[in-house]
Design a protein around this nucleic acid. Structure first.
Lengths: 159, 159
DNA sequence: GGGGTTCCGGATACACTTATCCAGAACAGT
DNA sequence: ACTGTTCTGGATAAGTGTATCCGGAACCCC
C-alpha cells in the first residue's frame, strides 16, 4: 500500500516528534525505528530537502522536526519520499477520451483518492500515543526497551 | 496502491469477461490490454494455476474465465498475483505485545483492511461497462479501436 | 499420425527499489 | 586554528519486481 521507504519515513518522523524538538542523531534514530542507519540517513536527507526536518551538524547536532507535529500531515511525509499515485488518464495507450476512466481505473483512482484524503487528514501528532496501551512506534510497556528516550547503558540488543 | 502486475491481471480478467467465455489467444489479449505479450503470458499462467482462468491449447484455444464474472471478486484476482498486505504484528522488532499496533501501524492496517473489503465487494461483472460513456478498459467510443471484439483489419497501431 | 497452433515453464535480461560505504564539508567546543 | 562530531552526497552493491526468450508439451484438425 505504501512503500517500505514511505513507512520508514513515517517511523522516523514520529520518532522525532516524540523528542519534542531536541536534535536526534542518526544512529539513535536508527535504533529507535529499527531502520538501518545508512538507509535512514538517506531518507532523512530527503526529508530535510523537503523542509520537513531540520539538520544540524557537529556535536549536539542531529535532526529535529521543522514544524509542530500538529501542523504536519502524514500525506506530506509520504509524498516527500514516495508520492501517492493517482490515475488521471487511462493507463492504456488510448488517450482519446479526457478524464473519463473506465470502471476499473475509476475505482482504483477512487481508492487512491480515499487514501490521499485520509493521509492528508491525519497529523503526525495524532500518531503519537493517543489511546494508552499501544504507544507510538509499537514501543512496549512491559519491556522498557528504553526506546532511546534516554540511554543509560543501552542494552544494544539490535540484532 | 496495487502493483503493475496486479493491475495487469485485472485488465486481463476484465478483457476476458468481455468475451463471454470465448477463448482468447494471448496475442489478442495483449493487444486489447496493451500489456506486453510475454509478460501477460506469465500472468495468465498464474491466474490459470489459481483456477481463475482456464487455458486451452491448440487451434481455437486460448484463455477464458473459469467462472461467471458476477461470482469473481477483484480481491481474488489481486490476491492471486500480489496479495494485499495486512499488518498483523508490529513491524518493528518488538514482538512483546500481541495484536496491539501503535497508532501509525493501526491506521495503515485499517487502510489495508478497507482496501481488502472494497476489493472483496467488487465483482468483475461490475467493471464491465455499467455506466455508459466510459466503456470497460477505457475503450474509447470515438475511436473504434475494435478492442479485439472482432478484428476485421486490425489497425495494428500498438506503438 | 503429421503439421500447425497454442500454452507451459525454465532461464535470462533489465529496471527500480532498497541498502551500504566512504571521503568530504559543516559545525561546536576548546 | 585544531579536534572530534555529525550531516552530505556520490558511488556502489544487493535484492526484488518486471519483461523477454525459447525449447518443449499438449491440443485440434486433417
Amino acid at each position: 500500500m505504501i512503500s517500505p521507504t514511505a513507512e520508514y519515513a513515517l517511523r522516523a518522523i514520529v520518532a522525532l516528534a516524540q523528542r519534542q524538538g531536541s536534535p536526534v542523531v542518526t544512529p539513535d534514530l536508527a535504533k529507535a525505528t529499527r531502520i538501518s542507519a545508512p538507509y535512514l540517513s538517506k531518507i532523512l536527507q530527503t526529508l530535510g530537502r523537503a523542509g520537513l526536518v531540520v539538520s544540524q551538524r557537529g556535536t549536539g547536532g542531529g535532526f529535529r522536526l521543522a514544524r509542530a507535529p500538529e501542523s504536519m500531515s502524514v500525506l506530506e511525509v509520504v509524498n516527500t519520499v514516495d508520492p501517492v499515485r493517482r490515475i488521471h488518464a487511462c493507463p492504456l495507450g488510448i488517450e482519446s477520451h479526457g478524464t473519463r476512466l473506465c470502471p476499473l481505473h475509476r475505482r482504483l483512482d477512487d481508492m487512491a483518492e480515499q487514501i490521499e484524503l485520509t493521509f492528508s487528514e491525519t497529523t503526525i501528532a495524532e500518531l503519537l500515543s493517543e489511546d494508552g496501551p499501544s504507544k507510538a512506534l509499537c514501543a512496549s510497556k512491559k519491556k522498557p526497551v528504553t526506546l532511546v528516550t534516554g540511554r543509560p547503558g543501552n542494552p544494544r540488543k539490535a540484532k
